[in-house]
Amino acid sequence: MLFGEIKKRLSSFRVGIAGAGGLGSNCAQALVRSGVGTLVIADFDIVEERNLNRQFFFLDQTGMKKVDALKVNLDRIGSGSVIIVHDVTLTREIIPGIFAGCDVIVEAFDRSDMKLLLIETVTREMPGIPVVAASGLAGWGGNETITSRKIDKTLYVVGDESNEVSDELPPLAPRVGIVACMEANLVLEILLNSKNGQG
């Protein structure tokens, strides 16, 4: 398929991204560059200097809301994607409304309790909508340990499924970026394989 055709097909889709940190910001960048039509991004956090070791933000954006800074950066790519942002803390109650109409939802949180909440809520409240989740990306090296697993038609997991972040095993740009781009890659696979092509 020519890139023009890929972009044309992707332009009809809407992808939700839950979290605008290391996973969400980098996954969003890859999806926008590929030509996904609409991204819906939700996060409550503010850009801090310590985020810059892995997140798609810049020093002069510290103090900004992550979703606002990310929208600026994604719009600068100039691919024509529509970026809808929500400055909110995602809860069981609001997740279905925020991500209504999304064809795929990317789990891009840092905390494991939030990962659990997103997967459980979408599975229960938005049946049939695929979730692409990340689990295990701390530290460095070990390329061969990072995998992508299809659990079933509505759940995919990317990561080493083993390493939790800690002071001694922090999240760093390469592994976080790898997992974020693997999430984006799975999203493209799901969208380009889908039959109806509806956004």
Partner: peptide, 10 residues
């Protein structure tokens, strides 16, 4: 049966 561990980090 699928048992999926969700490790922190992102």
């Amino acid at each position: 049966v699928q048992v999926i561990y969700l490790m922190s980090g992102g």
